[in-house]
């Protein structure tokens, strides 16, 4: 990467000595990002060592590795407004907006990718470090708590074969119910009292639709309306002649009627 010479001249050393040597340089501060334990990650110590945080702004790029104490420390941050990203292999973190004012006051908010940069989300707590690690640095270190979005899952679940999934299918369920009826009904009728059965059959006869359905299923109940001649019924010759066999099918029956006339 090519760097403009002006950038190379930026003071990279925190501390008073450089500040005195190069008074024209902008002030600098240090920021620490801390990953607190959270519901998706009760123990941040399991995060891989490749986890890094970056602070980005136009022509500025800072990168910091994850420390043993679950923090990222950034040194020599000049005033500006930065996008903070935490790149991790196992967990996803929310992007934050970190503003460093010219008086080195640090504020942080959640930010939403693809939204207006001014559209700040919830403010993230920013606290001065209780025990500053760098006694040499004149500026207080600031701690920002990182926000976790959740664990990353890279793999797709393979749909596994199981008998249960077959039975969950509504088509299979419907066909099972109708199959139950298909086999169960005759058994049920057979087990009925003769009186009740007669009554039921009587009832069946009075309902032509039921009879039709019974005929279609070709069961014993066809005894009642089994010989129902559809064509004759439609032609208006009510009742039909019961002696005639409709074995050759409804159409045949119809033509027979015609011949009779």
């Amino acid at each position: 990467m090519r760097i403009p010479t002006t950038l190379l001249l930026l003071p990279l050393l925190s501390g008073l000595t450089t500040a005195l040597l190069q008074p024209q340089q902008p002030p600098q501060t240090s920021i620490t990002i801390h990953i607190p334990p959270s519901a998706p990650l009760p123990n941040p110590a399991v995060l891989p060592p490749s986890t890094r945080a970056t602070l980005n702004s136009l022509t500025k790029h800072h990168s910091s590795p994850l420390s043993t104490t679950n923090t990222f420390s950034f040194h020599n941050i000049t005033p500006g407004t930065y996008l903070l990203d935490i790149h991790c292999h196992t967990h996803a973190f929310l992007p934050l907006r970190v503003d460093v004012s010219s008086s080195l006051k640090i504020e942080a908010w959640e930010t939403f990718r693809g939204n207006d940069w001014g559209n700040k989300g919830e403010k993230v707590s920013v606290s001065p470090s209780p025990q500053s690690n760098h006694p040499s640095s004149s500026n207080d270190e600031i701690i920002i708590l990182a926000r976790m979005a959740g664990q990353k899952s890279y793999f797709m679940e393979r749909s596994t074969f199981s008998v249960l999934t077959i039975f969950k299918n509504p088509v299979i369920l419907l066909s099972l119910v109708s199959m139950g009826l298909f086999f169960g009904m005759p058994k049920l009728i057979e087990n009925m009292d003769p009186e009740m059965r007669a009554e039921w059959e009587e009832q069946q006869k009075s309902n032509p639709m039921n009879a039709l359905m019974g005929a279609a299923s070709g069961q014993q109940s066809a005894g009642g309306m089994g010989n129902f001649d559809m064509a004759a019924f439609l032609a208006g010759s009510s009742g039909g002649n019961k002696e005639e066999k409709g074995g050759s099918g409804n159409n045949g029956g119809g033509s027979n009627n015609k011949k009779k006339r």
Binding site: L94, E110, R113, G114, M156, R158
Partner: peptide, 27 residues
Amino acid sequence: MLAIPSATTLLVGLLALPSAVRAVFRD
């Protein structure tokens, strides 16, 4: 719960992706 609103936006963002993303199977 502080993280909820932003987590949902992220979720929405992820859901907006087409289901046509083909991930790797573990096997």
